[in-house]
Design a protein around this nucleic acid. Structure first.
Lengths: 242, 242
DNA sequence: CATACCTGACTAACCGGTCAGTTAGTGTAG
DNA sequence: CTACACTAACTGACCGGTTAGTCAGGTATG
């Protein structure tokens, strides 16, 4: 699940990544200082530099860590390609269930906006985008092959879906537009417009709560309290930057 | 050439806004310093503070200035609502014709990502979003009334269109996705999916663009250039932050 | 002792904003 | 026409605060 890796600060280096997540939610990327991250952990700022040479190294490691989580969160089961596609959209556009969700999405958007200045960021972000795009593309292609979808271009269609997802996140952060509305609309797009033969029937396709995933990321406690050597501490599942 | 925004530097204060535009393109928002802006003008940093008390005041004035340009750039003529809708999409998703276009879009995205931390920014950005949303909504409502569009919800549909526009811009900045592809897709969405009676025929719906853009959807040349100018109301203006 | 891990104190650089003072223009009195 | 006064616009130098990164140690463990 999504709480696989972030939840278990086995090593100090991993604890730092968890602290980075919390600090990003609290301060955002632009105002994020090494001291902020240190304050979220039980380490000093100098200790951060012991494990990661530079601030950028730390952020890059954080993105890698995030990517791995994104991979597993996208591994939605389901034989039906349309079901899988809807599940994927759900993962990417899940409504804020954690308090920090909106904040984290904001930090991710800040990172995206830095991509043109920081090729290293861009490279990582492209991986997220590619992964999501490929996941959608495969589902669409399968749906076409199964005769469920019209004979659209899977690649172009996947691009459109990913673009809509990006738009929902951006608009949510910048003007507070509800993500959920876009999700419904996008789901309607794939379950109606893309479906073959389905002319125009407004066939209600609220796979919303029904679909297998329900809540992919259980994620219980919002943030119990930092340290404690135990294992499943504040499991802060990340979201997708794609 | 219209290397910078069209605004004629009538007053020193306006010249500063032009310099701000240039500095934003060159440095982005995150790394923008008052000195950067001063360097783009023929004034000193202290002179900037003479006209604008704080850096934020300057940026806010810049957003106001931008908004006015956006208003006029959205004033696309055209009696046909669909034509007007496509024209609006074109304004929002015009391919980079200025060198600084991508850079400026990046700066705008940085600003959007700051909205949650700076209510003053958010307020301005909401104005952009509302304006674009309202423009689209009106066109959609008219198209429905004219029997051209199906009986969709104009408000929700406009939201979707604006979201797609946001997504195209975000994805363009963060991973370099081509804006043009999304524009074609979005135009196809409104001229096919939304059109009443039009079941699935790829009926080419390229009405001569009113805003000077001939073929909207097809757009064969990936790197169009040439034309333009003619009917242009001169207000090529900035891009929309919406 | 050696190694891994960590700390407090420090440095160098940067940036927003301030300030005393300069320049240029304009009006006004002699 | 000159002399002076006043003001808007502007400048270079400077200040205070902040931050990434460094460094000389300290501590615990094997």
């Amino acid at each position: 699940m999504s709480d696989t890796e972030p939840a278990d600060p086995d090593t100090p280096a991993e604890e730092i990544l968890c602290a980075t997540y919390r600090a990003l939610c609290r301060h955002g990327y632009a105002d994020l200082t090494m001291q902020d991250i240190a304050d979220e952990s039980d380490l000093s700022k100098a200790a951060l530099h012991y494990h990661y040479d530079t601030k950028q190294d730390l952020l890059l490691a954080f993105l890698d860590h995030l990517y791995e989580e994104f991979v597993s969160s996208l591994a939605v089961a389901g034989g039906d390609p349309v079901e899988r596609l809807v599940g994927t959209i759900d993962v990417a556009l899940s409504p804020p269930r954690r308090d920090a969700d909106r904040e984290f999405r904001t930090a991710v958007l800040e990172l995206k906006a830095q991509a043109p200045y920081e090729p290293a960021y861009r490279e990582k972000l492209e991986a997220f985008d590619d992964l999501l795009h490929e996941t959608v593309r495969e589902a669409v292609a399968e749906a076409i092959e199964a005769g469920v979808f019209r004979d659209v271009d899977p690649d172009e269609t996947a691009s459109f879906v990913v673009t809509v997802i990006n738009g929902a996140q951006t608009r949510h952060v910048s003007v507070g537009a509800p993500i959920d509305e876009t999700r419904s609309r996008l789901v309607a797009y794939v379950t109606e417009t893309l479906v073959a033969g389905d002319g125009r029937e407004p066939e209600r396709a609220d796979t919303a709560g029904s679909d297998g995933d329900g809540d992919l990321a259980p994620d219980p406690d919002p943030d119990g309290e930092s340290e404690n050597g135990g294992s499943g501490d504040g499991s802060d599942g990340e979201e997708d930057p794609a």
